[in-house]
Each structure stands twice: as structure tokens, then as C-alpha cells.
């Protein structure tokens, strides 16, 4: 589904990422680690088409993102669930509406999907908070709502950018459990994190590989 072929990315005159090659096998679980500013978020954005590489190519389902228009990329993003670092909610909508956004924008009938939506909110433990607005939620609740929105379209790949960055350890564990459960259901998962304790804790739940990004270069790390 996602493949980087010697992909590079430059901001202005400086090169942030260079000649990255990566293929995420279906059903795999990868952690992406690296120091702050190493380009983890940029790499993830390349993976879901929010950025286009300045050299090399990023292939999404066999299609080069450089040749895809806005609508083509939008269509592709419905198949890639993303948990953003800052969650990216629309504040005047309820959590239920925010989680349902991918359904709404793809023209699905919300009434017909109401059962699935309730079930999903229950699965991430947010059923009682469904009518709340995003600013009323704690960090952990927001991350779980973001995860629910990321998987509402039943995507093949789930990408999470520092999903545990602003939440406590207990909540991090809960989020990791949800991601592991999704991986057991066959989803490909890519998580960017600087939280090494989280990676160690994942050993017990998933079989994951660690990708290390440093100096603009990607190194395959050890298998957990």
C-alpha cells in the first residue's frame, strides 16, 4: 500500500530527508523513532500524501503521489487512517461528528452508519463523551477520538504521529493496546514516537519492527 522509493524531501535550501526507501508489508507493525527534528512527521506526511517528495517517489497503492491531484489524494486518504499529533479536530462539532467526518466527506449515509459509530466510540471508551466538543476532552480522550476517526473508514493502514506525546503512561498503554488489537485484525500500523518505554512495552503485545530516522537517513532497527 505504501512504498517510498529513494524519496527525499527538502525545505527551501536544506535537505531534511534523502533517498529513503521503505515498504510497509500488509499487516506489519512499525515504530518510527528518531530525535526531535529528525523528520519523523515529514516522513509520515509523505506516507499519507500530505507532502509530495522533492526527489524519488512515494507510491500509494502503486500510484506515484507526484502525479495525483488533490481529489485523487483525498480519495487515497480514505484508505489511510491517520492519528495526528495535534489530533486535528473541528472544534464546533461534537466528538461523535468529528469521528464521523470521514464518513460524511465520503458521502456515506450517517443514519445507516450510526450503529458502527456507536460501537466504535464504545470500543475506544468514549461513548459517554460523544456529545462533548474537542476542547472539553482530556489529552488521552482526544487521542482515542482521533484513533476512532482514523479507523472509521476501515482503512488498510493506520499511521499515528506521536500519539502518546501528551498523555500519561496509563493512557499510553491503553492506546497502544488499541493499536495492537487493530494490527491483530490485519491492519498495517506505523507509529512515530520518541517514547522508548512505549516501544519496550509493546514487546508483549505485538511483533513490530523499529525504523530509526537520523540525519535524514532511515535505518532498519531491530525486530521487537
Amino acid at each position: 500500500m505504501i512504498e517510498l522509493q529513494n524519496a527525499g524531501y527538502s525545505y527551501g535550501h536544506g535537505s531534511l530527508l534523502s533517498e529513503l526507501s521503505l515498504a510497509l508489508p500488509s499487516g506489519s507493525f512499525h515504530f518510527l523513532v528518531g530525535p526531535s527534528g529528525a523528520g519523523k512527521t515529514t516522513l509520515l506526511k509523505l506516507c499519507y500524501g500530505d507532502l509530495k517528495p522533492t526527489s524519488g517517489a512515494v507510491m500509494l497503492d502503486g500510484r506515484d503521489t507526484r502525479g495525483m491531484g488533490r481529489d485523487g489524494l483525498a480519495q487515497m486518504r480514505r484508505r489511510i487512517g491517520v492519528v495526528h499529533q495535534d489530533c486535528q479536530f473541528i472544534d464546533h462539532l461534537t466528538i461523535r461528528e468529528n469521528v464521523a467526518l470521514p464518513l460524511m466527506v465520503s458521502g456515506r449515509d450517517l443514519a445507516a452508519e450510526a450503529g458502527n459509530l456507536d460501537q466504535l466510540l464504545g470500543w475506544v471508551g468514549l461513548a459517554p463523551r460523544a456529545a462533548a466538543r474537542p476542547p472539553e476532552l482530556s489529552g488521552g480522550e482526544r487521542q482515542r477520538a482521533a484513533l476512532a476517526r482514523a479507523i472509521i473508514m476501515d482503512p488498510e493502514v493506520i499511521i499515528a504521529d506521536e500519539p502518546t506525546g501528551n498523555i500519561d503512561w496509563e493512557m499510553s498503554q491503553r492506546l497502544l493496546s488499541l493499536l495492537a488489537e487493530l494490527n491483530r485484525l490485519g491492519k498495517t500500523v506505523l507509529v512515530a514516537t520518541h517514547d522508548l518505554a512505549l516501544i519496550r512495552a509493546a514487546k508483549a503485545q505485538v511483533s513490530a519492527r523499529v525504523l530509526r530516522l537520523a540525519g535524514g537517513v532511515l535505518q532498519a532497527g531491530a525486530e521487537l
Partner: peptide, 11 residues
């Protein structure tokens, strides 16, 4: 946000 969740321009 709409674009990130897959909204096309027409939407």
C-alpha cells in the same frame, strides 16, 4: 482537517 480526512474539493 476536511482534506486530511479525505474530503474532495467539491465537498
Amino acid at each position: 482537517v476536511l482534506r486530511l480526512v479525505g474530503a474532495r474539493d467539491a465537498y
